[in-house]
Simulated scan of single mutants.
Amino acid sequence: MNAWDLTLLHQINTAWSSPVLDWLMPALSAIEAWLPLIIVAALIAAWRGGRRTRIMLLCAGIAIALGDGVVSNTLKKTIGRVRPRDARADVIVRDLGTASPAFMRLFEKPVVKPSEPNGATHGKSFPSSHTVNMFAVATVIACFRRRAGMLMYLLAAAVGCSRVYCGAHWPSDIPPSMAIGVLVGLGVVGLARRIFQKV
């Protein structure tokens, strides 16, 4: 582990903490809690938007499936990097409280506790699937709707930071994950354009 990686981890995970961030960062990381709203927004966009919007949503879905199910999954299994919270006892673990349905977790008191490494692992650290997926979607949106894409890039960057704040990823996991997401998004859009041009 590089010294700068550990220093930056402690800075983000510990020194820059606050009660507001203790809720906000886990909330950004909890994609499943936002899933109902995301689905509703996508359905409204598909209904109200034109053909271009529907193609954009299709590309975004393919980018997530490819980025998460193929690229991230393969790299995680191949590299096998352990998460900070599973490797060190000086990391603060943050998460939303438990509730059902998952959306209600946003209204629960966040869980903030020191890590307790015991040899067990809770997933692998590299790459950050959250970051890959968010940057893939942001890239797809930017290719179709530039202004909306720029806002999505800001949200994607915040999600990437939240993964370090919550103790789930090392800082050095995030920039490569961003790049992977951008490449996946560009690849999907490029392929879609070729297919639709031929059609």
Score class of each variant (00 low, 15 high):
residue 131 T to I: 03
residue 104 M to W: 13
residue 124 K to M: 12
residue 186 L to R: 04
residue 161 C to I: 11
residue 163 R to N: 01
residue 188 V to P: 05
residue 58 L to Y: 09
residue 152 M to A: 15
residue 91 V to S: 06
residue 97 G to D: 02
residue 87 A to T: 09
residue 120 A to V: 13
residue 155 L to H: 04
residue 93 V to Q: 11
residue 179 A to T: 04
residue 185 G to F: 07
residue 82 V to P: 12
residue 77 K to W: 11
residue 128 S to P: 04
residue 130 H to F: 06
residue 76 K to Q: 08
residue 142 A to N: 10
residue 136 A to C: 05
residue 157 A to P: 03
residue 58 L to R: 07
residue 118 N to F: 08
residue 116 E to H: 15
residue 197 Q to F: 14
residue 60 A to I: 11
residue 137 V to D: 00
residue 188 V to E: 01
residue 166 C to R: 08
residue 67 G to D: 03
residue 171 P to S: 06
residue 127 P to N: 08
residue 110 P to K: 01
residue 89 A to P: 00
residue 193 R to A: 08
residue 66 L to N: 02
residue 183 L to C: 14
residue 119 G to R: 01
residue 151 L to T: 12
residue 167 G to V: 02
residue 172 S to Y: 15
residue 126 F to Q: 09
residue 141 I to E: 02
residue 104 M to N: 14
residue 198 K to M: 15
residue 152 M to V: 02
residue 99 A to V: 09
residue 101 P to N: 07
residue 106 L to N: 10
residue 116 E to V: 13
residue 162 S to E: 04
residue 114 P to T: 09
residue 184 V to N: 05
residue 117 P to V: 00
residue 96 L to V: 05
residue 141 I to M: 03
residue 100 S to Q: 13
residue 71 V to H: 07
residue 92 I to L: 15
residue 165 Y to F: 12
residue 96 L to P: 03
residue 114 P to D: 01
residue 172 S to A: 15
residue 180 I to Q: 00
residue 113 K to F: 11
residue 184 V to A: 04
residue 180 I to C: 04
residue 156 A to T: 08
residue 164 V to E: 02
residue 74 T to A: 13
residue 130 H to A: 07
residue 153 Y to M: 11
residue 187 G to E: 09
residue 175 P to N: 03
residue 99 A to D: 08
residue 150 M to Y: 14
residue 72 S to L: 05
residue 91 V to R: 03
residue 184 V to R: 02
residue 135 F to R: 05
residue 197 Q to Y: 14
residue 76 K to P: 00
residue 172 S to D: 13
residue 78 T to K: 10
residue 170 W to H: 09
residue 163 R to T: 03
residue 185 G to K: 03
residue 197 Q to P: 10
residue 77 K to P: 06
residue 198 K to I: 13
residue 172 S to M: 14
residue 169 H to N: 05
residue 99 A to K: 01
residue 117 P to F: 11
residue 112 V to H: 09
residue 174 I to Q: 01
residue 115 S to W: 07
residue 100 S to V: 11
residue 145 R to K: 15
residue 146 R to Q: 14
residue 191 L to V: 13
residue 169 H to L: 03
residue 151 L to V: 13
